[in-house]
Design a protein around this nucleic acid. Structure first.
Lengths: 140, 140
DNA sequence: ATCAAATATGCAACTAAGTTGCAAATGTTA
DNA sequence: TAACATTTGCAACTTAGTTGCATATTTGAT
């Protein structure tokens, strides 16, 4: 299982044309184990090895650019990061953030997020849809 | 028209149980004229009178709490603020942010945001849905 | 009108997520 | 293994937003 993960990570990095460095592998493993979007700080605290936060941000940046990691924006000043799953750089699945504990969860297999999420024990108090791209003026 | 706006603002503040101060009125007028979500900095620069940024943030905070203003989260570290329209604290309409000029627009009357927005000249490169509330663990 | 209580304001200093520049270290390719 | 490209770590910086506190303004009761 662990060896499969190593192989998988190695392959992913090779395909992305990224150097196969200790830090990248460690951060990817932490994201694999987290199974939900987590913050830079959470990545740092879950790691045995000390990381400089700049290294974490830059590593995440390269992985995001390669489409391996996704930045899940939450209604906070900090972002949460997760392995890209069922999403591309263009389109992402819905996320849910708990206002009490601050954790962020993915609501991926729900075609009707709000209704379905409520059934799963999530109480939703705020919903938003955000689109990004070029406005008419900037499209020209 | 201007007198109607003054009366309207006065009424809104009274109903919300907020003091009818010069700053609140000025900030509300700026938001009325903006007709789209704008940043704290934009509010500041649109104002003739000098505002301390703390005052702007605290004024916005009180107006948000009263349901008069809405905080539109965008995929940036800064938030944009707008007059609440067709939204409550619980539910908000879709927003669109231009990645080139940084402006944020409301896509309120569109039942199918992506399709309809494309027709209006918006090129969408990223979409996300975000829900907030209590997770199962915190609901108890 | 005016005084007291409640609320709002402005300043200075702070917090924290994320960024930049640069020199040293590590990974890759030939 | 040498040469080149990429990554790393450190220090210093940026910036949206916050906190504490003393002063000013608004309001409601008298």
């Amino acid at each position: 299982m662990n060896e499969n993960l190593d192989t998988h990570i190695y392959k992913m990095l090779t395909e992305a044309g990224l150097y196969h460095t200790e830090n990248r592998v460690l951060i990817l493993k932490i994201l694999f184990n987290a199974r939900k979007p987590i913050s830079q700080e959470a990545i740092s605290s879950k790691s045995v090895k000390h990381f400089d936060k700049v290294t974490i941000y830059r590593t995440l940046e390269s992985l995001i650019k390669a489409g391996i990691v996704h930045k899940a924006f939450i209604n906070k000043r900090a972002s949460h990061y997760e392995l890209a799953h069922r999403c591309t750089t263009k389109q992402c699945h819905p996320h849910f953030t708990c206002t009490k504990c601050g954790s962020t969860h993915c609501l991926v297999d729900l075609s009707m997020p709000m209704a379905a999420a409520n059934h799963k024990g999530f109480t939703i108090t705020h919903q938003q849809v955000h689109l990004e791209g070029l406005c008419p003026a900037c499209s020209q």
